[in-house]
Each structure stands twice: as C-alpha cells, then as structure tokens.
C-alpha cells in the first residue's frame, strides 16, 4: 500500500456518537477530525463494564452509537478542563470489545493494532476503530472542551469520563469492511 496516498485525503469532520451510515462511509486510511461526545475507558473500567453487563446491569453510559476513547488523562491543572490526554494501546481492551460492540458501541479511539477477533467483530457490527497519535498529549488536551467523571471515580485516571471534544485528529485503522491499516507484509 502506498501510504503517500493517505495524505491526499484531507481530513473531514465527523460527530460522535456515530450515526450508522457514517461508519459505512469510512475506509482505512481516512484522516478525520472527531467532535462531539466520547467516553474514556481503559483497562480497569472495561473490566467493570463487562462485569456490570454480565450481571444484567446497565452500562455507565449509553453504548448505542457510542465512541470509547482508550485514555487515562493526567489530572487537570487549575483553570483547565483536563490534563494531558492521549490514546493508550488498544489490544488490552480486545477481550471486552466484541461484547461492547454487540451492545451498540460503534467507535473506538486508541493506538496500535487489534486482534483478528476484534477486526472481524468491527466489520460484523459495522463499526470503526480510529488510531490517534500516542505521546502528543499536551497538544491533544486542546481538543477537549469539557470533562466530567460519570463512573468509577475510585479508579482515578481510569475512571469513565464524558468528554466534549473538538477536532480530535484520527486515522481509520479498522473499517466496517474488515480493512486493517496495520495488516502489512512487513509486520510478518
């Protein structure tokens, strides 16, 4: 794949939560700016959400069309809505992802590659996995306008936060057709 082709796709804006037709339209390598409402959840929050669903309890936020940002921000300094924020490596959430997709999750923002199971589940549920750049968290903090904890406050940085974001830059890594940006011969 010629990666220079990717630069010809100028970023366009999409809004979260995601309408079903948006995912049909997205393809591997698309550069996008995400705005709207997303929820942070990473390792410990995923364990709790999965346990809640197994008990028959409601998830801590409406999963229908939702976008989860795999992130644990640093604490907000005075006068700022949030501290440094950026994606954590996504594969650690793979064991929980098919279940959440079944329950309506439509988008995930993270970094790194997903398991084959998850890539298939993303296609089956017509969802999308976005890659954000790791380690640019001072810059990415500027994309967050509001943040509030909505669940699991005791988890500290791993609590579930509702974020209002503007123009968060991402690339489509896995699309609803089963495409995978990271599936390349060089990866063996």
């Amino acid at each position: 794949m010629n990666f220079n082709v990717l630069m010809e796709n100028l970023p366009r804006r999409i809004a979260a939560p995601l309408a079903p037709e948006i995912c049909e339209d997205l393809k591997v390598g698309d550069r996008l700016l995400i705005g709207g409402v997303v929820y942070t959840a990473r390792d410990a929050a995923h364990q709790r959400i999965a346990a809640a669903l197994a008990r028959g309890d409601d998830p801590p936020f409406d999963l229908d069309g939702a976008v989860i940002f795999y992130a644990g921000p640093s604490p907000a300094p005075p006068g700022r809505p949030i501290g440094a924020i950026g994606p954590t490596t996504s594969y650690r959430m793979d064991p929980f992802t098919p279940l959440l997709l079944e329950r309506g999750l439509r988008g995930m923002i993270g970094k790194g590659r997903r398991s084959e199971d998850v890539v298939r589940a993303i296609a089956r549920h017509r969802a999308v996995y976005f890659g954000a750049i790791g380690g640019i968290a001072a810059l990415m903090a500027k994309c967050v306008q509001r943040a509030e904890i909505v669940a699991y406050e005791d988890l500290g940085p791993e609590a579930v936060r509702r974020l209002e974001i503007v123009d968060l830059p991402v690339v489509v890594v896995n699309d609803a057709r089963g495409g995978d940006l990271f599936a390349r011969p060089a990866d063996g």
Partner: peptide
C-alpha cells in the same frame, strides 16, 4: 508546563 504524554 504540560506533560508530554498523559502516561507520565
């Protein structure tokens, strides 16, 4: 004076 990465 912000952290370079949220993972400090």
């Amino acid at each position: 004076g912000m952290p370079l990465c949220q993972d400090t």
